[in-house]
């Protein structure tokens, strides 16, 4: 069974549900976890959910722009991960913790 035949049997809504679920799981993680590294990973998860949707639409509509955007998102995600982790390391050095709830100096 080639991928093309499977593709023909799929509806866009399936991918919509799938990526929404993935996105929500990532969001749940962001809200629930306190470890900054896990938080960053959850963000990656959410980005991937979006990517998946982009690709799905792109394929369905026969428009390659969506895939280009995914490409750019990956770039940004990589940059974000790099800087984010660097900041994390810095935070850990200063506080010996990666718990985000410690970082509440910006009180109103």
């Amino acid at each position: 069974m080639s991928s093309l035949t499977i593709f023909n049997q799929l509806e866009i809504s399936h991918y919509i549900y799938l990526s929404t679920v993935l996105f929500s799981i990532g969001l749940f993680g962001v809200l629930f976890r306190r470890n900054a590294i896990i938080l960053l990973m959850c963000i990656e998860l959410m980005l991937n959910a979006v990517n998946l949707l982009f690709v799905a639409f792109s394929s369905y509509m026969g428009d390659s722009d969506g895939q280009i955007f995914v490409f750019f998102i990956m770039v940004v995600a990589a940059a974000e991960a790099a800087v984010g982790l660097a900041i994390l390391v810095l935070v850990y050095r200063n506080t010996r913790k990666t718990d985000v709830s410690v970082l509440d100096n910006l009180k109103g």
């Binding site: 962001v30 809200l31 985000v100 970082l103 910006l106 009180k107 109103g108």
Partner: peptide, 18 residues
């Protein structure tokens, strides 16, 4: 009262955002 909302804790901000 409102400024208590701005407690500097990112978790809360995330919830507000959502």
């Amino acid at each position: 009262l409102l400024s208590r909302v701005q407690n500097g804790n990112i978790e809360y901000y995330l919830v507000y955002m959502v």
